[in-house]
């Protein structure tokens, strides 16, 4: 299994910085790359990162180059969660409206 762990660790962008946490400037570069990638997903009506096929490969590459893997996982999960929460809120609102109409 060694080859798997070594392959994973060598693909971690944070390793290139020797374990030093990103500073304000690096954080901003990562957030910008994330926002550009997410904007591309929105443009192509894709919610879940990774399901866009090759439509945003340039943006995705920049995102992966500038953000730690753990950050990317976190941002991607949050994007889906936030959308689901929005849907749930809308559903609840609709149900409340329907109930009001019926009364």
């Amino acid at each position: 299994m060694n080859w798997i762990t070594s392959w994973f660790s060598s693909s971690k962008p944070s390793d290139s910085s020797g374990g030093i946490a990103p500073d304000r400037a690096k954080r901003k570069v990562c957030w910008d790359a994330r926002d550009t990638y997410f904007a591309c997903l929105d443009k192509n009506s894709v919610l879940k990162p990774g399901e866009e096929q090759n439509l945003c490969s340039k943006e995705e590459k920049r995102y992966e180059e500038n953000c730690a893997k753990s950050w990317i996982e976190y941002f991607n999960k949050r994007r889906v969660l936030q959308e689901e929460q929005k849907d749930q809120l809308k559903m609840m609102e609709n149900q409340a409206n329907d109930a009001r109409k019926r009364n």
Binding site: S14, D15, G18, A68, K69, S70, W71, Y74
Partner: peptide
């Protein structure tokens, strides 16, 4: 427990 160490990528 071995998971948390400098250079590791976790939240």
């Amino acid at each position: 427990e071995g998971e948390a160490s400098p250079g590791q990528d976790y939240l």
